[in-house]
Simulated scan of single mutants.
Amino acid sequence: MKEILRRTWAEIDLDALAADFQAVRACAGEGAQLCCVIKADAYGHGAVRMAREFEALGADWFAVSNMEEALQLRNSGIKKPVLVLGFTPAEEAGALARFDISQCVFSLDYARELSLYAQRAGAVVKIHIKVDTGMGRLGFCYQDFQRDSGAVAEIKEACTLPGLYPQGAFTHFASADEGAGGDAFTMRQFGCFKELLEALLREGVSFDLRHCANSGAVLDYPLSHLDMVRAGVILYGLYPSGEVRRRPALKPVLSLRSVVSHVKTVYPGATVSYGRDFTADKELRAATIPVGYADGYPRLLSSGGAQVLIRGVRCPILGRICMDQMVADVSALPSVKPGDIVTLIGRDGDGAVTAEDLAAWEGTINYEVVCALSKRVPRVYIKGGKIDSVYNQLV
């Protein structure tokens, strides 16, 4: 791998990405458009390259968290519609219109402010009304048909303000990835959303796009697919939880690799790393690996029983993970030498360490594991078993 420095890198399998996209497309069904969620640098996979791949594969929409992420796509030549799912300062209305970016609108006050700035800019901003049916974050609250009936009038006013075009309406499920345990609340949310849409339709308010299905709902709640689905983590070959019931064959797209930089003997009574948390009770062979929490391999894994793969064999981490380095027990591999590849996420021979493994050791979810990879880790894109390109933010 001469295209990058052999220190620590992430490999992105574009063939796996294409297969996962087609699997998700099949789950979405023929009647729903597919919106690819590529916020947080496409869940650590590289937003621009992922958007280009998805656009070529036939994506209908992209969704991002904020205006900066949307502009990154537009400045990179992405032409498909882009929706900002979160907050954008209303004074950016002119830029939203100029770059053809659709904006989430979550309250009447925000709609009025956005309308004001749109008029000042002589622009029309495409908006998607966000409805809070139970997530409890952003949105016009509509969690109870009677109590929250005032939301109908507020949304109607927001949709008729000058300078705004009501392109879509959406909500977000809180427990669609919890299997049978999430059924009751997910269907309650879906019922609230549908009831609100029908109430708005009676008031003469309609939308081009109605969407509420996140990754969990794409898999388990086909009734909720409506006009468009918003697929996130499943596009990258990761299931949103272990509880989802519909599990198409997905292949993780991202692998994280490093190398052995040094091999040494640790004698009985010797300690390893900061705080001297680990003391050897017998003679060990230990390998230093140039990866740490500044690369996105969390320090919390120090005490979680984390392991890495070297030559297909799982090797436990010794002591605390540092900012730039860590140490693994390679006593089971007497021939290990500097330069050997270390797999932190991914497959090596018959062995595998998954993002779910790291999540379990860390006490988190696979989303956070891949999103946490830092910008100093180059993304190496693989197609047909060969390096296609490298994205390195530092050079």
Rank of each mutant, 00 (worst) to 15 (best):
L116M: 14
P290F: 11
L114I: 10
S389M: 05
R311Q: 08
R314L: 04
I341Q: 15
Y239S: 07
R245K: 07
H262T: 03
Q307I: 03
A352S: 12
L197C: 15
S302E: 05
S261P: 10
F99K: 13
S303T: 12
F185E: 11
R120G: 03
A28W: 01
W61E: 06
R285K: 13
P222K: 03
C315Y: 09
G296R: 08
V64H: 03
R25A: 05
N392Q: 09
V244Q: 02
W61L: 08
Y391I: 04
D220V: 09
Y117W: 15
T88H: 00
E243P: 08
A270C: 09
G150S: 02
L318T: 02
I127H: 05
A328Q: 03
L14Q: 02
F99H: 12
N66W: 00
I38W: 07
V369Y: 06
P240S: 03
V82T: 12
G122Y: 01
V369S: 05
L196K: 07
S107K: 08
Y381M: 01
L34P: 00
Y221S: 12
S224H: 00
A174D: 04
D329S: 05
L114T: 11
A121F: 06
Q393I: 06
R74L: 10
Y165P: 01
A355G: 14
V37R: 10
Q325T: 15
E203D: 06
L57V: 02
D144N: 11
R311A: 12
E113V: 03
L200C: 04
L5R: 13
I129S: 06
A372G: 12
A97T: 08
R202G: 13
Y367Q: 13
R49M: 07
D100P: 06
R299I: 15
L116C: 05
S107F: 08
Q393R: 15
V263H: 03
V244M: 01
I387N: 05
S389D: 00
Y391T: 14
F62E: 03
H172T: 00
E11M: 12
G29N: 05
E92T: 05
D148E: 04
V48M: 09
V313P: 00
V131E: 05
L201Y: 10
K130N: 12
Y165F: 15
T171I: 08
V105M: 09
L200M: 01
L200T: 07
F278R: 14
R347Q: 13
D15Q: 06
G319V: 11
L14W: 00
S224L: 12
G384S: 09
A158V: 14
L284V: 02
Y43S: 05
V390I: 04
V263S: 04
M1A: 14
S331E: 03
K80C: 06
A23Q: 13
R245H: 01
D144S: 07
H211G: 11
E356A: 12
R230S: 10
R379N: 04
G319Q: 00
H45F: 10
D183E: 14
H211D: 05
R137F: 06
L300W: 12
P378Q: 11
I387T: 15
S241Q: 07
R285M: 14
M323D: 14
E55D: 15
D357G: 04
G292L: 12
V369A: 02
V253S: 04
P162S: 01
Y110P: 10
Y117D: 01
E68I: 03
L223M: 08
Y381A: 01
A28H: 01
G237Y: 09
R49D: 02
E3R: 14
N214K: 00
S224K: 03
D41I: 00
H225L: 01
V84T: 02
V260E: 13
